[in-house]
Write a protein that binds this DNA or RNA. Structure first.
Ligand SMILES: NC(=O)c1ccc[n+]([C@@H]2O[C@H](COP(=O)([O-])OP(=O)(O)OC[C@H]3O[C@@H](n4cnc5c(N)ncnc54)[C@H](O)[C@@H]3O)[C@@H](O)[C@H]2O)c1
Ligand SMILES: NC(=O)c1ccc[n+]([C@@H]2O[C@H](COP(=O)([O-])OP(=O)(O)OC[C@H]3O[C@@H](n4cnc5c(N)ncnc54)[C@H](O)[C@@H]3O)[C@@H](O)[C@H]2O)c1
Lengths: 243, 243
DNA sequence: GCGACTTTGTTCCTGCGTTCACAAGCGGCT
DNA sequence: AGCCGCTTGTGAACGCAGGAACAAAGTCGC
């Protein structure tokens, strides 16, 4: 499934001056996009970097540098045209085309994802569901019938699935991953708490909620212990006392 | 406050020599922890940094540096004692104590989280559920009855909830967040796609699946377009995928 | 007991990402 | 029309994280 003819999108991606967009910036751009669309719905047509940065929870300089990666489309003295900015960020992120999603493992989490309207609404239609459980095969979930895992390669290739979402138990995850790769899927979102081994040209993002909780735990404990020195004590630095 | 020789360690948290552990390292340590516990279940008692790094998907030098933050407990020429390593990582991450979780918004996602045994299994017992929907109040989910959102502050304080998980629709998220903070919760895991505004002493981690998908989309499109320099660069040998 | 091999812990360095700061540019006001 | 103030875009500095390389240290084999 090599994408040869991109020329069809004349307003397309190929003439963007994008080089070396930092990984972190890509994630933030997606956040800006969400804030912007929300603002547009409220009728906002122009935003300054200061305001947008505040809403996105980042430094305004960082925001402006991030936006410079998509090209300079702001107006000095005024700010950014929200609609135009959305358009350009979407183009950089490759959202001008739709990306079909396949969800594998229609258990608790898989059900929630399959029913979630936020994905199709944002250009990520769920076009395939898979499970091993015979009782689930053929049952429609969110309007789409569940197929058997064995048909992953064929169906993914046929429906041009670009993103595979793994919601199976840990022992099944690696195998499912390989089936997806065999079906031509090169982007994987993995909810199973395991590090998947994949070829170099496959991109995996892992969503590990237990890790998130443990990071929160770390900060919680650290906060109570000050800088790790001495027993549990109130913060030593009297920052509250201003000079 | 002195960091005495850490050849001797008592079981307490207070004399850990942890200072300035990089944020990224904390996340990786949680991953090592998972790999290690999995290995221990398989009877592995010793691991080298090379092997552990491979399983965790990181560079071995990075791994050793990360482990140096928890103290030097490896044996040169042999590797790390898995059980002891787990013990020390858990201590650094503050997992020696349990952290009660409250889930707010018992919809699709909230149900999945409330039923997920992986949280209590890892020291994060779910001790409170909240929703606005009258039909849900009192209904047990995962063995725990749902309470009304209005009782968030009281119940969170009473049950000493340390982590609040927000699974409500976007418009409700900020309000729910404030209720949690009022109940003394200072760590929040937010699934609603919105940037929460919180006091400085509250730590928020956002899990935004749409952002994850968009990052994957970016890489997908970029891969097809080469490195952005010049027009579309085609991979000479596409993988042996049927076209 | 001793040597050689293995692996850790650490140091140095390179590269990236973030922030500061400021000149350039644009709109609005008088 | 010209000036003023506001905001962008970017160059430069700073801080930090990640990777390579190496010396110390401990074990295993003989
Ligand atoms: N539920 C949560 O809140 C939650 C939170 C964090 C992580 N996770 C992780 O997400 C994954 C799924 O969680 P869940 O709660 O939905 O589990 P679940 O048990 O409810 O669902 C798992 C589903 O996968 C299917 N399955 C099993 N083997 C399969 C295979 N080989 N191929 C395809 N499908 C297979 C099962 O039939 C079942 O429908 C797990 O790895 C879990 O650790 C879940
Ligand atoms: N379901 C998914 O797969 C998914 C994926 C990504 C993000 N999210 C986000 O997670 C959140 C929840 O998603 P969901 O699919 O579970 O939605 P849902 O509609 O199934 O559930 C939302 C729940 O929140 C409750 N609620 C509404 N207002 C409330 C309030 N003020 N206080 C407390 N509870 C309230 C509702 O009664 C309902 O039970 C949403 O913000 C959604 O965008 C969900």
């Amino acid at each position: 499934m090599t994408v040869h003819e991109h020329g069809r999108y004349s307003t397309g991606v190929e003439d963007l001056p994008y080089r070396s967009v930092p990984e972190a910036a890509v994630g933030r751009l997606a956040v800006y996009l969400r804030v912007l669309t929300s603002m547009i719905e409220q009728g906002v047509t122009t935003m300054s970097s200061e305001v947008l940065a505040g809403a996105a929870g980042v430094n305004s300089a960082t925001l402006r540098k991030d936006l410079s990666y998509v090209g300079s489309y702001g107006t000095r003295g005024v700010g950014y045209d929200t609609a135009r900015l959305v358009e350009h960020i979407e183009r950089l992120l490759g959202l001008t085309r739709h990306h079909s999603i396949a969800v594998v493992g229609i258990g608790n989490l898989g059900h929630a994802l399959a029913n979630y309207p936020g994905f199709p609404d944002r250009g990520f239609p769920v076009t395939a569901l898979f499970d091993l459980d015979e009782d689930l095969i053929g049952v429609p979930v969110g309007g789409l019938p569940v197929d058997h895992v064995d048909s992953i390669p064929a169906i993914c290739a046929e429906r041009e699935v670009t993103i595979g979402v793994i919601c199976t138990p840990v022992p099944a995850a690696q195998g499912v991953c390989e089936l997806l790769v065999a079906g031509g899927v090169r982007c994987i979102l993995n909810f199973a708490p395991i590090v998947l081994q994949v070829p170099d040209d496959v991109e995996v993002r892992r969503v590990d909620l237990a890790v998130e909780l443990q990071i929160l735990s770390f900060h919680q404990v650290r906060r109570c212990n000050g800088n790790g020195v001495g027993p549990v004590v109130e913060p030593i630095d009297p920052i509250a006392v201003s000079r």
